[in-house]
């Protein structure tokens, strides 16, 4: 697998969440995603970016364009140094929230991605990786 492009964006405020959406749109469009696929990944990115700002106390997004032998895709890596997620399984359950949201963010983002991974250590931070491939 080749990483064709690799950029880092700040994710610190709700304005940054909007910028993340715009950047993800331009990358997925460049790779040739269909409108539906673009929208799915942008929405997933928006959910995770908001979590990074609200629960993670801000962090960064690494935006990568991937190319393997047969497919192209986009990978998003959100990293924060926040309090971490103590119970990942519970956090992924629809309807569960530690804040004031609907509790659809993580589970919804997982459904909207082809690949989804959470690594988190309480007290050290959270890294969430999502990827979607061009159909």
């Amino acid at each position: 697998m080749i990483v064709e492009a690799d950029d880092v964006l700040p994710v610190r405020s709700t304005e940054d969440v909007v910028r993340v959406r715009q950047e993800v749109r331009s990358r997925t469009a460049a790779v040739g995603f269909s409108l539906v696929d673009q929208t799915k990944l942008i929405t997933a990115a928006s959910e995770i970016a908001r979590n990074t700002v609200i629960y993670g106390g801000g962090g960064t997004l690494r935006l990568q364009i991937l190319q393997n032998t047969t497919r192209r895709g986009v990978r998003l890596i959100f990293e924060d140094k926040g309090p971490g997620i103590p119970d990942i399984e519970r956090a992924l359950t629809d309807g569960y929230t530690s804040g004031s949201g609907l509790g659809l963010g993580l589970g919804g983002a997982r459904r909207l991605s082809n690949e989804f991974d959470i690594a988190s250590k309480p007290g050290e931070g959270t890294t969430i990786t999502l990827a979607r491939w061009k159909r």
Partner: peptide
């Protein structure tokens, strides 16, 4: 609309 449904909303 498709994305919102997938999101569960």
């Amino acid at each position: 609309a498709i994305t919102l449904v997938e999101l569960g909303l």
